[in-house]
Design a protein around this nucleic acid. Structure first.
Lengths: 252, 252
DNA sequence: ACGCCAGATCCTGTCTGACAGGTTTTCGCA
DNA sequence: TGCGAAAACCTGTCAGACAGGATCTGGCGT
């Protein structure tokens, strides 16, 4: 029954790790859902007979994993899984050069291409309206001096598509992969693009949304793949971009 | 300069959160890489003038995120990004019913289809040999009473393909999505399959490996997609499986 | 009887000081 | 010069204490 899966990164069953595992077992046992209250630190101290310091460290570990929401004065409660933790992990991997921006973008491509396919199957009417409105907004922002409005609409389209896929992992991973990229790539890509490039980008989004709204999964996936290959190609013209550029045709 | 990105899950800049951010800044400033040593707790205490308890909590947070490797008696050092943290997050999402097994498998499908495409481009000769050997091993294990040998080879094929994709995020996410599934789906799927199903599964892996070794990105992706749809369809025949089952043909 | 406010209670954030046990370094002795 | 033991360093854990925010409770006033 004592299943040692080593909660954080510790191999010797330290006390705080055991406390953390106890908490996780408690959650699983009682089938707690996000928002549920968990025992206070002092309560666990008395229950398990360990010092408050050890319990605090366990709580801290679970809070870092996005499992517990801890606020001063309040009972700790379970948190909905959020992108913050994943974003931190990916951000750390990027900052320490364990992965590079191309890897992250490639993974986003995989997620978003499949997400577009699923979105075409599951998109709601309200989401269709929202998506079309965002495309209009994007196009009308083409003349803006700064690109903030266009970029905002761009991101909102991707987010909405991820939500429409009805797989909560899609918006989660999208946000988690996007955030660290923005921190690393300080240069605003939009500012370096030519007018014709910007128009092509808007057209690409238009095509994606159109295919999604039409319920055309294959076309939506192909349009999303093409969008990525177009953008990646204009960011850096290394041989890798050329490699992935051949794939989208296969999706059509 | 004071960029408040809220390290863990705390909005009020608590002391320990500030310490954690200080550590991260230190890492970024000095361009530290995995394996590098970071200051000890006591050192940071003296440097920042905070109590050891607060510093400990910060270190604990970073350890939970897989950034620091902390062991008794040793100076803490930077860790290579590992799947453990991601697996914990996904496992928590699964256990609290924020996502279900289908979502996880769908995401794996997206990752692995693209991974197979990239693997076909980047696979090394040594990996080709290894992959072919694993397929042989899988086929020769068809007659085994228990399925452990076949399952082991199966997983090794997927892992090797992910590594061959030359995107470190692929093996990372594959492992992170696979581990929690194994904990949740206690029923050994292999034991419920018929002989003909098992043969089809081996053939599917054979086809994937063959396309990868031939450098056929499109075919490799299609074969991987077909493998997933075949397996998912036999796991549960809900309408969702039917939906995704139509996609693979488009990839061919 | 109802609503509001103040005190009591609970909980987290932080500090101080201390000791056990493991790891690394250093230094003296052979 | 080489090796072993002691010293220095580091994390793990404990106890007790106080500040401040959040919540609950009960009494007071209308």
């Amino acid at each position: 029954m004592a299943q040692l899966h080593s909660v954080p990164t510790l191999q010797k069953p330290t006390l705080s790790a055991q406390v953390a595992r106890h908490l996780l077992d408690l959650i699983a046992q009682q089938g707690l859902r996000p928002g549920a209250l968990v025992p206070s630190e002092v309560q666990i101290c008395k229950d398990l007979g360990v010092s408050r310091g050890s319990v605090r460290e366990a709580y801290r570990t679970l809070a870092a994993l996005g499992i517990l929401e801890i606020e001063s004065g309040r009972r700790p409660r379970l948190q909905s899984v959020s992108e913050h933790v994943l974003a931190q992990v990916f951000g750390y991997a990027l900052k320490t050069a364990q992965v590079n921006a191309t890897h992250v973008i490639d993974t986003r491509r995989a997620i978003e291409v499949q997400g577009a396919q699923l979105a075409a199957r599951n998109v709601t009417d309200a989401q269709k309206v929202s998506l079309r409105g965002l495309v209009d907004q994007m196009r009308s922002a083409l003349g803006d001096r700064d690109h903030s409005r266009r970029v905002t609409a761009d991101m909102a389209i991707h987010t909405t598509l991820a939500e429409a896929s009805c797989n909560p992992l899609n918006p989660l991973l999208l946000a988690a992969l996007r955030a660290p990229l923005e921190q690393v790539m300080l240069i605003d890509l939009g500012n370096r693009r030519s007018e014709s490039e910007l128009i092509r980008i808007v057209d690409a989004h238009d095509a994606i949304v159109e295919r999604v709204c039409a319920g055309d999964a294959v076309g939506a996936g192909a349009a999303m793949a093409m969008h990525f290959d177009l953008s990646v190609g204009s960011i850096s013209t290394n041989e890798h971009a050329a490699v992935t550029a051949e794939v989208p045709a296969s999706l059509a």
